Amino acid sequence: MALVLTLVAVAPTGAQSVEKSNISFMLDWTIAGTHAPYFIPLDKGYYKAEGLNVKIDRGTGAGNTASNVASGVYDFGWADVTTLIAFDAQNPTKELTLVYISFQDAPLAIVSFKSTGITTLKDLQGKTVADQHGSAAGAVINVVTKAGTPEEIKITRKFVTPQLREPMLIRRDVDAILAFDVSSIMTLVDLGVPRDQISVLRYADIGFDVYGTGLWVRRDFLEKNPRTVAAMVRAVNKGTKDAIANPGAAAEMMTKYAPLLKTDIECQRLLIALDHHLNPDVARYGLSHVDPKRMQKTIEQVVHVQKFERTPALDHVWTDRFLPPQAERMAPPLGTCGPK
């Protein structure tokens, strides 16, 4: 009897409760420091403690992540909220739902060199920018420029692959690039550009105030596997708190899963990402806090910008029913990239 009791005591907390233990998880893009909150649970055993065996794969763009999760190739996805809303608007029978919000604002930005002088929307007049087909940043730039100033802003867009954007900016083939700040800033630094020479004009600061990124799941998966979803969310929440508390250790850990990453670059990239995680609402209410009115506005903005005929329902786009208690979601003090 004593032996049986010992075995029960050390069993994973979620092992007897989750409906599905083998979980596939697709990211938005190439594995980087940004993704530390999702690899920490793998590295520290948080997924395992919840009874989950999680396999994480890189993505090739948010749109592809949405398609793969919706089709059942992957159980969970992580990418930007605007892509999820756009997907739901066009696919009412395959809707995806946010179960954990990571970035409280969108990382969409206009990235340039300070010497170019782009600090406001008006400064874009007559400029040439690099974009990629289907990018979230490019999809809304015309509406952002119209909403941000009464003057007509005319820009020339060069469509290139993501790998060419930063090199084109360095060569001065373009004046700016439309991208995620969390990606482009440190890519430029890694290519030898001093960070103090980089200018970032975030869409959030020029009128496009929407939620950023989060953990997605199919609605049918959510309804059939509620304990699995709750277990996944608990593990991700723990990983997020650990990344906030010690970004340096988190970045170093990431090199186990992507050996070509540079710890110093990825720690700075992670700090940029964590800046999107943390805001006054999170400080007051905890990680993954969502204001329903702001989320509704996010949905309406995306639908308006991309001229969709259908507006997804708020309770289909987002739910908080799987979140841990508020006390477990309070963020620790933000750490640094140095030794702790």
Rank of each mutant, 00 (worst) to 15 (best):
Leu3Asn: 00
Val4His: 09
Pro12Tyr: 10
Ser17His: 05
Asn22Cys: 11
Asn22Met: 11
Leu27Arg: 06
Ile31Cys: 06
Ala32Glu: 15
Pro37Asn: 10
Phe39Met: 13
Lys44Gly: 00
Ala49Thr: 02
Gly61Pro: 09
Gly63Trp: 08
Gly63Glu: 03
Ser67Gln: 11
Ser67Ala: 12
Phe76Tyr: 06
Val81Gly: 00
Thr97Gly: 01
Leu98Cys: 00
Asp105Pro: 07
Thr116His: 11
Thr116Val: 15
Gly117Gln: 05
Thr120Ser: 15
Asp123His: 09
Leu124Arg: 06
Gln132Tyr: 10
His133Asp: 02
Ala137Phe: 05
Gly138Gln: 03
Val140Phe: 06
Ala147Leu: 10
Ala147Gly: 13
Gly148Lys: 05
Lys154Arg: 09
Pro167Gln: 00
Met168Thr: 05
Ala179Thr: 15
Val182Glu: 14
Met186Cys: 11
Asp205Cys: 07
Ile206Val: 15
Gly207His: 11
Phe208Met: 11
Phe208Gln: 10
Val210Asn: 06
Pro226Gly: 05
Met232Gly: 02
Asn237Met: 03
Ala250Met: 00
Lys262Ser: 15
Asp264Trp: 14
Ile265Gln: 10
Glu266Arg: 04
Gln268Trp: 07
Asp275Gln: 08
Asp291Lys: 04
Gln301Asp: 15
Val302Lys: 09
Leu314Cys: 07
Asp315Gln: 12
Phe322Glu: 02
Gln326Ala: 12
Gly335Leu: 01
